[in-house]
């Protein structure tokens, strides 16, 4: 089994059955896994901020930093490897927050809102999600069977 690490503001796609895509330390960042079980293609995106308009230049150099520029590229790259929209399963994790009752640091919540809007516009539903809370998450997907696991505070569960 070969592990490919997806960093912060990064994305990877793969169709190699022996590979696992993994991303660490999702705090308020959003992790999105897409998987086509027919083509056996998976993609994993780790975006930090909701909208690219705050820094368009940065978005050009590093499109995966933002949800609105990262999501279209995630799908595009998966299509390039043979995935088809009709088969794609979407899972989302992350978007936690500090103990911020006044909601000033609600970057996580905004990340998730932008994802939902984008998917809704494109008639795509989220199959499973593990969103919110105050923990950091590690997310991985196996290309072979599309199994997605989320690890939080030493405990792992399947999504």
């Amino acid at each position: 089994m070969k592990t490919q690490v997806v960093g912060i503001s990064d994305m990877k796609v793969s169709n190699k059955p022996e590979e696992v895509l993994i991303t660490y330390s999702l705090g308020s960042c959003l992790g999105v896994v897409i998987y086509d079980p027919v083509a056996r293609v998976a993609g994993l995106l780790h975006s930090m901020l909701p909208l690219s308009k705050i820094d368009p230049q940065k978005a050009k150099a590093s499109p995966f930093m933002f949800v609105d520029t990262g999501i279209p590229l995630l799908f595009k790259e998966a299509y390039n490897l043979g995935a088809e929209k009709k088969n794609i399963i979407v899972k989302a994790a992350g978007c936690s927050s500090l103990l911020d009752e006044k909601g000033f640091f609600k970057i996580g919540e905004r990340n998730f809102t932008v994802l939902r809007k984008l998917l809704w516009k494109n008639n795509i539903l989220i199959d499973k999600q593990d969103i919110g809370g105050n923990h950091s998450r590690t997310v991985s997907v196996s290309i072979n069977n599309g199994r997605v696991t989320v690890k939080t505070g030493g405990k792992e569960h399947e999504l």
Binding site: I8, S25, K102, F105, I107, G108, S136
Partner: peptide
């Protein structure tokens, strides 16, 4: 510190379990 914890930059199992100060902002 609050922003870097939120962004998941080098975060441990204490995670995001910290309360940011509204007054600072």
């Amino acid at each position: 510190d609050s922003l870097c914890m939120a962004g998941g930059m080098g975060v441990g199992r204490d995670g995001l379990q910290y309360r940011p100060s509204e007054n600072v902002v």
